[in-house]
Amino acid sequence: MLRYVGRRVAGLALVLLIVLTLVFFMLRAAPGGPVDAYLGMNPTPEKRAEVEHRFGLDQPIWVQYAKFLGNLASGDLGNSLFSDRPVSAIIGERLPVTLELSLAAFLFWVVVGLAAGALAARRRDSFVDGLVRVGSVVALSIPSFWLALVLVVVFGLYIKGVLPSSGWVPFTEDPWENLRGVVLPAFALGLGSGAVIARTLRASMIETTRADYVSFARAMGMPERRVLRRITLRNAIIPTATVIGLMLGVFVSGTVLVENVFNIPGIGQTIVGAFRQHDYPLAIACTLITATVFLVANLVVDLLYFVLNPRIRAGFLNGTAR
């Protein structure tokens, strides 16, 4: 088990390195550069050379890359080219915002998705089931940025004052306002994922209901509620957990769109600005942090899967599975 986690963490570090290298070269290959962004139109050649030197861009790209790796290894992500503040400080401010938003959306939509899926499966072909089925198809076909725009317009123009539709109040400043502010963006961020979770759980519960082991438990006189809790849910949750894991990516990447629409100062908003301005250190740091969150979340889900599924667990313990 520990060896498995160790191997996964090593793999994770390798993936991060590859991603960062790709971003490093892609940023430099892209047309334009930080100097243009920094100096605006038609700078003098002398001024150009000076800024290029200041940013370290006058050196050969391999030297720049070697320096970058060296700094990375020592934990130094550098300063933002524009604000000249340490990138780690900027990330430190913005990451909690994105994490709070993602986590709120994730928790809310996992709970709602699971509850809706279980209810629909339990009352199959009833009105509730129909509602969940139709509702989830509709939810799936709504792009999150469109939903976000609609929410901003509706809550910003028509029903003002109910829920804030733009900006961000830190939790430490005003917890209540902070939580009110999370509601709309979190709703927009996870609606589609919630629908997928509900549909997956519903389908896998219905599938499980037909299993021989459910029939046998019922034939032994086990009450339906107990069958549901001990057997149907327990088995149907395994494929659903996999899907929830896949959805984590959506919760992380979705913040780029949602934060920009709701004007929330998180990583998603920062990353867009950093790439637009060719702020190399900040862009790299945002990439690093997003990828790490995503990969770690996936690792956690894999470990959860391992806990839920005794077959895989046993395979590890006696060494038949890798």
Partner: peptide, 17 residues
């Protein structure tokens, strides 16, 4: 009224001891 099922391999829940 008891029942001994036809397919023993799949008649116990796979996720519980």
């Amino acid at each position: 009224i008891g029942l001994i099922p036809q397919r023993p391999m799949t008649s116990l829940s796979p996720t519980t001891s």
